[in-house]
């Protein structure tokens, strides 16, 4: 089928200002938007730049705005979006070139929530695993799926307002550890997310939940965090 692909372009080595380029392509409706970008790069303009790696929605490299919504280019097919396709970089992070944005503020926020397992108690006497029931494990299953693609955080109006807001992805990570029965640093993390840059900036707009390519119930997870910061209880 014939599609029109309109792509945001900006090369700081050449361009004073960003612009759009339009490409008319003959493609299959089952092709990924990433396949279209590869086609343009291969045959129309080699300088078109974007990040990609796994090409099937698990590495988180190619989050971008497709027809105005944050999605992974490798997990969105032509038939999902129609024959007029506009591709733009994520909002709220500085554009470095074409579809590539500066991910550092995003990862800086991630690093603020103590994004690692903390348990300084002695290991079980038999040296084996720390026991965890299937129910305890299920409690935080949803938030272990995050691939740090930034689709959620860069869809959030609070983050657009100021990137000192931790943002949904960092909060999802905090949730993953706070609700893990084996972890011992919940109170420290709750303190961090209770600060002004934390959960209070979430106004339940649900953009993050809509944007998540891993179908994580992000707004629900943030709601659970809000409750925990109010009650001081994790259950």
């Amino acid at each position: 089928m014939q599609v029109t692909l309109k792509v945001f372009r900006y090369n700081p080595d050449v361009d004073k200002k960003w612009h759009y380029e339009t490409y008319n392509l003959d493609v299959e409706e089952t092709e990924r938007i990433l396949d279209l970008l590869e086609l343009v790069k291969g045959h129309y303009d080699g300088s078109l730049s974007f990040r990609r790696s796994c090409a099937h929605g698990v590495c988180g490299s190619d989050a971008m705005r497709i027809n105005g919504r944050n999605m992974l280019a490798c997990k969105t097919l032509v038939r999902d979006v129609g024959d007029k396709i506009t591709v733009e970089p994520l909002l709220g992070l500085k554009v470095m070139k074409d579809l590539i944005v500066d991910m550092e503020p995003f990862f800086d926020n991630y690093k603020k929530v103590l994004p690692y397992f903390i348990n300084d108690s002695p290991l079980p006497a038999d040296g084996k695993e720390r026991l965890q029931s299937p129910e305890e494990r299920a409690r935080f299953d949803d938030t272990t799926k995050c691939i740090l693609c930034a689709a959620c955080t860069t869809s959030c109006p609070s983050f657009w307002g100021s990137d000192d807001y931790l943002g949904p992805a960092a909060l999802v990570t905090a949730h993953r550890f706070i609700f893990d029965s084996r972890d011992e640093a919940a109170s420290e993390r709750l303190k961090i997310i209770s600060e002004t840059s934390g959960v209070a900036r979430c106004h339940t707009v649900y953009n993050c939940t809509m944007a998540c390519p891993r179908d994580i119930q992000i707004t629900k997870a943030i709601g659970e965090l809000k409750m925990a910061t109010l009650t001081g209880k994790v259950d």
């Binding site: 397992f117 290991l123 695993e129 965890q132 029931s133 935080f140 299953d141 972890d183």
Partner: peptide
């Protein structure tokens, strides 16, 4: 076991293993 001790969320048996 080292991965588990680092916090890796393995699926569990009813006994928690």
């Amino acid at each position: 076991l080292e991965l588990e001790h680092m916090g890796l969320p393995f699926d569990r048996t009813p006994e928690g293993r």
